[in-house]
Amino acid sequence: MNATTNQATSIKLVLLGESAVGKSSIVLRFVSNDFAENKEPTIGAAFLTQRVTLPDDTIIKFEIWDTAGQERFASLAPMYYRNAQAAVVVYDLTSPQSFLKARHWVKLLREQSGNNIIIALVANKLDLCEEQAQPETEQEETEPRGNVRKVAKEEGQKLADDEGLMFFETSAKTGEGINNVFLSIAEKIPLKKKGNEQESATFNGNGQSENSTSSNGRIDLNARNGSSEACGC
């Protein structure tokens, strides 16, 4: 495994966003390619890592702090975003409230870290969005929910454009778009200068200790559902 022998570039990344928007699920998908319907709410923050090898053999090691979403824990957040090079601000596209919260986080990050921090805005729970269900996702149980999307893609895109953020729509449940978020962040980290062929990126096993809940499994790139930026919504 040359991933461990080569010098890896670390990216410190923090996830922020309202409670239950799917921060932990996004990380779980990225790190273990797994999904749990009901995950215990994160208390404080959780730390996970994932290594990614890019086509040019650059190894990126993500060191991820997945913070708790509830307001009461917000006072801990600065400890985690203070030294972060990248932040993923997550909202739930079925919850306008969570979008407001995402705005708040973006504003706060810009105040605290200026432009030193790369921010990705992520609208999660795309699987709940009906228009999305038709094109290519094979949902096992297609929930007859009607369209539950409450935050239009354009709203998210506009916020991203205004604030200079990357923008993605994802589903941690189906895995759609998740890896792309992290790969795009890796692309943008100033240290590296390289092509943008991230589609063919290979992932090596994560750097977890054996006691971690996450498996040592590799991420199956085939699970990716193409580019989520070209979302069908």
Partner: peptide
Amino acid sequence: DMDFQGIITFLQNVP
């Protein structure tokens, strides 16, 4: 015997 990552990961998932 662990480094930062090992310690934190371990203490979040104590066996």
